[in-house]
Design a binder for these strands. Structure first.
Lengths: 284, 284
DNA sequence: AGTAATTACGAGGTACGTAACAATC
DNA sequence: GATTGTTACGTACCTCGTAATTACT
């Protein structure tokens, strides 16, 4: 008995006739007919009640279909498990405290590790460290190096927060601004910004923070309203600097250095990415 | 992916090496090696970590073995279901009120229906009728014909009870005896005698009935003790008539006529046996 | 040396598709 | 006549086993 026969049996049950099943399976009637005869011989049971030109499943046949379904379901689960495994093998899970390092790391991976896909996750500092230790992620991006013998850490990139406002805004002409200057303004903020959200809440206690979940809607609002927002001057965001002023924020808390961290026993692929990112970080 | 590969994988896991598994499966190393490579290709995963002359299951391999076990377990269940079905198809279940008709029917089946096996069950009259109606048995043997339009009944055989005692027994020389004569005697009785047990209890209320479950022990006791017992003079029991007297019992209740009953819609095999038994019954 | 795995190669068998046939709707 | 299933037949592919090769213990 082989799985192919069970798949065929299932098809016959589904299609009603051997011919139709043969068509569905992209094989020929005689082939399928023979195969079913073999299955019958193997099980020692007629599975079809046959008139000269009709083969209909009998009781034993229905029993066989039922069991075949179970066997094939297990086979499917096996395949799914391996698909999952394959997926796991080409994804690198990154726990990061901010989105910008994910983008940077993503571009490195796309350029130099085709086939590998990042699975980024925004978390707190403690959670990032925790996930790395627990193998819940392969790489962590934190604001402080993780001081453990089992973990390797390198400085990866810095991020500087800028204030963006319509040209007519009272602070638009300033060379720099401070959080104190900005406190009280209304800000549009994308939800997925990691630890920056805490920074906003802490240093702009009197501001109204409008949180937007949807990235597309967020971009729409930026372009179509007069609301202030934050940016880090990544090239992609340079869309309409003509209509907007972009002013650096002076406070130390508006500047972050990120560290890329991996376990010492990381698999080859992770090591390679870590290595590449280290060089990229050194270049920048 | 085919079941054969999963069986092979399981064997490799069990035997530790491909060579050993090949031996166990009565095939050759190269064949098994190729087969495993195919499975790996099919699953898109290396299942073994290979040095030049050693192939050890890796994590993916162990995952595969685990799932293979599940798939093969389902296959086994399917085979078991069909073995069970096959067994059901060559067994005829008989619900009988006494053992003697079972023996007679058994000899008919053995002679003329090789391959068919009887599955006899000793029950009461009501239970026999009930089982026949419920399809819990294929044939019923009762003391009265079942008067139902859905059931066919024919007289099958008669059984006459005899009294057996050591030659020195006070009743050994009698031409006939009655239950009244026997009442008070101690009897050895085999447990599986159907309705005859009720007859004993009813007509020999003062006798001590020693019930023996085990057939072999029962025969031993008959041959080695002076205990009285009952017999129906079937040829097999003629062992030592020299040492024992066998006296017919006169009472009407010591004579039974059995009827063989089948459902009107019985399958061919049951009909054939019913037919054969009817002729045999007519002959006797 | 001995064991274990892979590769090469030739033979055998098996399963496929085409074609012919039979029977039912 | 169209559809459905089985049988016949020739081919192609696939898998098997033997033998040779390589590497590790």
């Amino acid at each position: 008995m082989e799985l192919e026969q069970l798949r065929q049996l299932e098809a016959v049950a589904r299609c009603g006739t051997i011919s139709a099943a043969a068509k569905a399976l992209r094989t020929t009637q005689p082939s399928l007919s023979r195969s079913m005869k073999k299955l019958e011989a193997d099980l020692g049971q007629e599975l079809f009640s046959r008139t000269r030109n009709r083969a209909v499943l009998n009781d034993a046949g229905r029993l066989a279909v039922e069991h075949a379904g179970r066997v094939l379901a297990e086979e499917r689960r096996m395949r799914e498990a391996f698909d999952e495994l394959a997926k796991r093998q080409r994804t690198v899970r990154v726990a990061s405290v901010a989105p910008a390092p994910n983008w940077r790391l993503g571009s490195i991976v796309v350029e130099r590790f085709s086939g590998v896909v990042l699975e980024p996750d925004l978390v707190g500092d403690a959670e990032a460290e925790h996930q790395l230790a627990n193998r819940a992620c392969d790489l962590a991006i934190t604001r402080r190096p993780i001081q453990l013998p089992t973990v390797a850490c390198v400085p990866f990139m810095t991020e500087d927060l800028y204030f963006s406002a319509p040209n007519g805004h009272r602070l638009a002409k300033r060379g720099t601004v401070s959080f104190d200057d900005l406190n009280g303004e209304t800000f549009l903020v994308f939800e997925q910004i990691g630890f920056w959200m805490e920074v906003c809440r802490r240093f702009l206690p009197d501001s109204q923070i409008i949180v937007q979940k949807d990235r597309m809607v967020f971009m729409q609002l930026i372009n179509s309203t007069e609301l202030c927002y934050f940016t880090t001057l990544v090239p992609e965001n340079d869309a309409d600097h003509t209509a907007r002023a972009v002013v650096p924020i002076a406070d130390a808390e508006a500047h972050a250095t990120f560290f890329l961290c991996k376990r010492a026993d990381a698999p080859d692929r992770t090591n390679a990415i870590f290595q590449a990112a280290t060089q990229q970080g050194a270049d920048a």
